[in-house]
Amino acid sequence: MVQESRDHLLLRCEISESIWKMALQRLGYRSFLFHTWTSFMHWLSHRDSSCPLLLKRLVGQAVVYELWTERNRRLHDGIATTSAAIFKQIDRFIRDAILGNRRRKHFHPLMQHWLRFE
């Protein structure tokens, strides 16, 4: 049995890696994965031309939340969800968050970017 750690649960387990691949592709990044929490935090704080920083942070928060929720469902309820179903929940969360803040200037371009690589 693999020891539970933050890096394993949220970045390196099979489900986490699958979900991160889907999320990063949706943001327009070529396939890469985070292997440490430090590299994930660096990515979250680094501005680049591929994706708005606000959207990166929103996606990072949504992925971590859904992965933790999935971990708890599996551990406490014995219910396992597929990676595709988890990503569908993340997608819905991102869309709702953008739509809920659509009057804020910084949120205007986010939906277009989120849907660009769908």
Results as ranks from 00 to 15, higher is better:
residue 25 Q to V: 14
residue 101 N to F: 10
residue 85 A to P: 09
residue 13 C to V: 09
residue 58 L to N: 03
residue 65 Y to P: 04
residue 16 S to P: 02
residue 78 G to P: 04
residue 60 G to L: 01
residue 39 S to L: 10
residue 30 R to Y: 06
residue 75 L to Y: 12
residue 118 E to H: 08
residue 45 S to V: 15
residue 100 G to L: 12
residue 74 R to P: 04
residue 103 R to P: 15
residue 21 K to C: 06
residue 90 I to D: 02
residue 77 D to C: 10
residue 70 E to I: 00
residue 65 Y to I: 12
residue 14 E to Q: 14
residue 49 S to P: 02
residue 47 R to N: 15
residue 89 Q to A: 06
residue 95 R to V: 14
residue 51 C to I: 06
residue 49 S to N: 06
residue 26 R to D: 02
residue 92 R to P: 04
residue 10 L to D: 05
residue 101 N to D: 11
residue 33 L to M: 04
residue 77 D to F: 14
residue 36 T to D: 05
residue 81 T to R: 03
residue 64 V to C: 01
residue 77 D to G: 07
residue 15 I to N: 07
residue 87 F to M: 12
residue 3 Q to A: 15
residue 11 L to Q: 05
residue 50 S to A: 06
residue 108 H to P: 01
residue 112 Q to T: 15
residue 1 M to I: 12
residue 43 W to G: 12
residue 105 K to S: 14
residue 13 C to E: 13
residue 107 F to I: 03
residue 14 E to K: 12
residue 98 I to K: 00
residue 45 S to Q: 14
residue 112 Q to H: 13
residue 56 K to H: 02
residue 97 A to P: 09
residue 34 F to A: 04
residue 117 F to T: 09
residue 42 H to N: 14
residue 17 E to M: 11
residue 49 S to G: 03
residue 66 E to V: 05
residue 25 Q to F: 15
residue 89 Q to M: 07
residue 28 G to H: 04
residue 63 V to W: 00
residue 48 D to P: 02
residue 9 L to C: 10
residue 111 M to Y: 04
residue 88 K to A: 15
residue 89 Q to I: 08
residue 51 C to F: 01
residue 81 T to V: 11
residue 18 S to A: 12
residue 55 L to T: 01
residue 45 S to P: 10
residue 53 L to G: 03
residue 65 Y to V: 11
residue 48 D to H: 02
